[in-house]
Amino acid sequence: MIYKLLEKFDQHLAFDTAKAHCDIPCGIYDPITAQINALTVVRMIDLITHLENTHKEHDADFMNSMSRYVAVKEEHAEKAKHEIRVIWGDYIKAPHVEKHPEIPELVHKIMQLGSKSRQTVDRDTALQFVEAINQFAEIFWDTKGIAIKRAKAPYPPALELVYPNL
């Protein structure tokens, strides 16, 4: 209640701020980058599958498109893993793990699913990758005391993502 009151005052009076920043500009953590990267992995698998089903001749055009899709899939699976590692390593603290003891296992699961998504074109694996990162996002926003909502991404493959309900 006191916080809400101060927040209202702040909107009108704009209290002075004191920065608790880290290496510039620390404090900017958001799992959405990892979520979008994982979504891209699913999208690339869909494009790979579609190309394989519609392009009977494996000509230069086919090879060119296929290699680009595979490269993007590789890159984004690795980027998603990187983003999760940064939040895990730099942001998550002991009290967060105490409250959410499932985090270490979840992070490990994300790493494994990310690797498998690079090795294969298994859509189910990629979907699990997206969902595991969604679960990580739920925990992340809970540590910030911010409510979440689930909504379909407004672009293909239109999978459900976790967003902060601001």
Partner: peptide
């Protein structure tokens, strides 16, 4: 009264 920005004092003091 001062408002905290950033997370270097997290999880005790948060953004």
């Amino acid at each position: 009264i001062i408002k905290v920005t950033g997370d270097s004092l997290s999880p005790v003091y948060n953004d």
